[in-house]
C-alpha cells in the first residue's frame, strides 16, 4: 500500500496518470519519460530526505507506482537503521 503523501507527489509529476494512483499504475504509461524521471527522483529525495543508491536507479524501480514506493520505503528504512543497509531489503 503506497503512502498518501507519495501518491500526491506522483500525481504532481504525472498529470496524465489515472486517479487514484495505485500501486499498479505503470509509470511509463502515465507519461514518465527519462527527463521527468530525474525530476521525480529528485523531488522524492527532497521529500523523504534520502538519496537513492545507484543499484536502485533502473527500469524495475521505475516500472510501477508500487515498485517505486517499495524502493523509497526500503531506502528510508535503510537510512533510519543504525547499521544502515544501503537501501536493500532484508
Amino acid at each position: 500500500m503506497i503512502e498518501q503523501g507519495f501518491a500526491d507527489l506522483l500525481a504532481d509529476h504525472l498529470p496524465e496518470a489515472p486517479r487514484p494512483i495505485t500501486e499498479q499504475v505503470r509509470l511509463r504509461d502515465a507519461g514518465l519519460d527519462s527527463v521527468h524521471s530525474i525530476d521525480l527522483l529528485l523531488a522524492i529525495e527532497d521529500a523523504y530526505g534520502i538519496e537513492f543508491p545507484a543499484h536502485l536507479l533502473n527500469d524495475e524501480t521505475f516500472d510501477t507506482a508500487g515498485s517505486l514506493w517499495a524502493a523509497v520505503d526500503g531506502t528510508v528504512r535503510g537510512a533510519a537503521s543504525p547499521a544502515g543497509n544501503g537501501g536493500r531489503y532484508g
Binding site: 530525474i38 527522483l41 529528485l42 529525495e45 538519496e51 545507484a54
Partner: peptide, 14 residues
C-alpha cells in the same frame, strides 16, 4: 548518466 544526476543533486545543495 551518473554525472547528470550528480549535477542535479549538487544544484539542490547536496
Amino acid at each position: 548518466a551518473d554525472v547528470f544526476l550528480g549535477c542535479r543533486r549538487v544544484r539542490r545543495g547536496r
